[in-house]
């Protein structure tokens, strides 16, 4: 028997409660900033965030009911997008800067000490200014983040096993409930119907920018790894390698 369906408000409440805590680097970044110690700090922080991301995903209502294969694939596909939308959310009130954590924020010139990073930095800052322009609400933000997770591995053809097919139909239903919750959150802003549809389109268009920046970031991280620029921690390394496998 399926548990009683959650109302959009209840679903948003649960997704809000799933939010990870603020994550601190806990070590001052070594100065002067060099490519190596910026990358060291960013990868250290990312590895911590990944641990919290997995427990966040498990708290998204319905996620753990999906097949383990789908859970693994989704997280491997979208992890950097989820990190990036969180970064944008933290940076929304700091134009021109990226607030990686309360104790690690970088300006453009500080970021430019990492070869190839400034292009990604600029894309993230541009996307963040779009988020500021749209006055993204927290309810909308948590719905978008959940959609990034649930929408991430549509491109992967899963085996046609019956449990995989069952998991896929569960996934599509779950994605629709989060879409309903996002529509509900937008409707709360008191916009006319036409303005609501337009806002929904604007928010969903953000997701394609985030996917693009994430792919650029993944390539950059991969080439940092190939250059042995930075020691990658086990979870981050695993997620990077898995993403490369999926996208190749």
């Amino acid at each position: 028997l399926n548990p009683p369906a959650l109302t959009p408000e209840q679903l948003i409440q649960q997704i809000m409660e799933a939010e990870p805590p603020e994550i601190y680097l806990m070590k001052d970044i070594r100065r002067p900033l060099t490519e190596a110690n910026v990358m060291m700090s960013l990868t250290n922080l990312a590895d911590k965030e990944l641990v919290h991301m997995i427990s966040w995903a498990k708290k998204i209502p319905g996620f753990v009911e999906l097949s383990l294969l789908d859970q693994v694939h989704m997280l491997e596909c979208c992890w950097l997008e989820v990190l990036m939308i969180g970064l944008m959310w933290r940076s929304v009130n700091h134009p021109g800067k990226l607030i990686f954590s309360p104790d690690l924020s970088l300006s453009r010139e500080e970021g430019s000490c990492v070869q190839g990073f400034v292009e990604i930095f600029d894309m993230l800052v541009a996307a963040t200014s779009r988020v500021r322009e749209l006055k993204l609400q927290r309810e909308e933000y948590v719905c978008l983040k959940a959609m990034i997770l649930l929408n991430s591995n549509m491109c992967l053809t899963s085996s046609e096993g019956s449990d995989e097919l069952q998991s896929r139909s569960k996934l599509l239903r779950l994605l629709d409930t989060v879409t309903d919750a996002l529509v509900w959150a937008i409707a709360k802003t008191g916009l006319t119907f036409r303005q609501q549809y337009t806002r929904l389109a604007h928010l969903l268009m953000l997701l394609s920018h985030i996917r693009h920046v994430s792919n650029k970031g993944m390539d950059h991280l991969h080439c940092m790894k190939m250059k042995n620029m930075v020691p990658l921690y086990d979870l981050l390394l695993e997620m990077l390698d898995a993403h490369i496998v999926h996208s190749s």
Binding site: V51, I54, S55, K58, K59, L68, Q71, V72, L75, E76, D234, L235, E238, M239, A242
Partner: peptide
């Protein structure tokens, strides 16, 4: 996928 699977399959605290 050792680390990811391990974190996915551990019961929430």
């Amino acid at each position: 996928h050792t680390k990811l699977l391990q974190l996915l399959t551990t019961k929430p605290e």
